[in-house]
Nucleic acid binder design. Structure first.
Length: 339
DNA sequence: AATACACACAACCGCAAGATA
DNA sequence: CTATCTTGCGGTTGTGTGTAT
């Protein structure tokens, strides 16, 4: 026996909202608030809509101060860096962008940003391939592998695909939104729990955003990782300068990434593809969000060795070959550092 | 001009967590 | 403590619009 539906599907209208419906909903909420009960709301107003649908319509479209489209370069950078940092936690990402909704950001990411980013990554990878090939040809190194098609990466050895186990042996505090919220609060974010503030009860997840400077401080390095934008370069190392923030490089921080079982393969690939630029992200991942426990700080963890230890262990390998692959990967990393 | 295709955006669905009785 | 209800979230689908053929 399944769960009871939230509304009578037969008597509920679906599809696009009419201007009349919008006006009814908007007027009512502006006058009375949501009453903390979306399910009952459509009946009160006389709308033949599901409560969830009303909520969504209000949050994503009717609520005041909503921005649609026209994402700025800065917003792009924030979205990208946060996505790389925390994955598809759209509500958290949206909380950092005033006037943006999670749905909007999600759509924007899926339709544009992802492609934009992937295109950028491919270009840079190709450039790296070319320069690497040139170097190897100069050296006359016969061991160098040359890929014969687009899908093979001649530069990085084939690394076994890690199996992402949701939240493997890590602190359970790291597994949920509230934990991430705590982290962001700790690092300067502002996430009010007061979601319902009638008469201006907008039921929004868009609480006061981090001011942009703190956002940049928080994400500056990871932003820098994916953006070659000169405007962002000044943000280098700002993260490591955050007061009272210490890093547990080998500890819990990276589990955050592993815990995101929705973390997309392409972004994982991106991270693997940019080892030399991961310092800042490593710092971000390395934050012990529970205790801010002692550990190496970002300045001490700038070597790729530290970063690689963040990225791989303690992922569960498919088989023993994985370990060998990791060794090969480490070796290739040393090769990379020579350049 | 008609059609096919691609893209962007709005909306829906199912699940999980939190709240409440 | 348990069951039920509501909310919030993220993934997915549907629809309208623009562009290419």
């Amino acid at each position: 026996m399944g769960r009871a539906p939230c509304c009578d599907k037969a008597n509920v209208k679906k599809g696009p909202w009419s201007p009349e419906e919008d006006a009814k909903l908007k007027d009512y909420i502006e006058q009375h608030g949501t009453g903390n009960n979306w399910i009952a709301l459509p009946q009160k107003i006389g709308l033949k809509r599901c409560g969830k649908s009303c909520r969504l319509r209000w949050l994503n479209y009717l609520r005041p101060n909503i921005k649609h489209g026209g994402f700025s370069e800065e917003e792009d950078n924030i979205i990208c860096s946060l996505y790389i940092s925390i994955g598809s936690r759209w509500s958290i990402i949206a909380a950092q962008l005033p006037g943006r909704t999670d749905n909007d950001i999600k759509n924007y990411w899926n339709t544009r940003l992802k492609k934009k980013l992937m295109g950028k990554q491919r270009k840079e990878q190709q450039a790296r391939r070319v320069s690497c090939l040139k170097q190897e040809m100069k050296k006359g190194n016969g061991n160098f592998m040359v890929a014969d098609n687009e899908n093979q990466n001649p530069y990085w050895p084939e690394v076994p695909v890690p199996v992402y186990v949701p939240y493997p042996n890590q602190d359970p505090h790291l597994n949920d939104h509230s934990s991430i919220r705590k982290l962001l609060i700790k690092l300067g974010g502002k996430f009010s729990d007061d979601y319902h503030q009638h008469p201006n009860d907008y039921g929004t997840n868009l609480q006061g955003p981090l001011n942009i400077s703190s956002t940049q401080q928080l994400y500056g390095n990871s932003i820098n990782m994916i953006s070659s934008s000169a405007s962002m370069n000044s943000l280098d190392n700002t993260f490591s300068q955050l007061p009272n923030t210490q890093y547990d490089v080998a500890g819990t921080g990276m589990h955050m990434l592993q815990g995101l079982n929705s973390f997309p393969v392409e972004l994982t690939e991106m991270v693997y593809s940019y080892p030399q630029r991961l310092d800042g992200v490593g710092c971000f991942y390395g934050v012990d969000m529970v205790n801010c426990s002692t550990g190496t700080n970002s300045a001490e963890s700038t070597s790729w060795g530290d970063i690689s230890s963040l990225v791989y262990p303690p992922l569960v390998s498919i088989d023993e070959g994985c370990h060998e692959g990791m060794i090969a990967f480490e070796e290739s990393r040393d090769l990379d550092l020579q350049y």
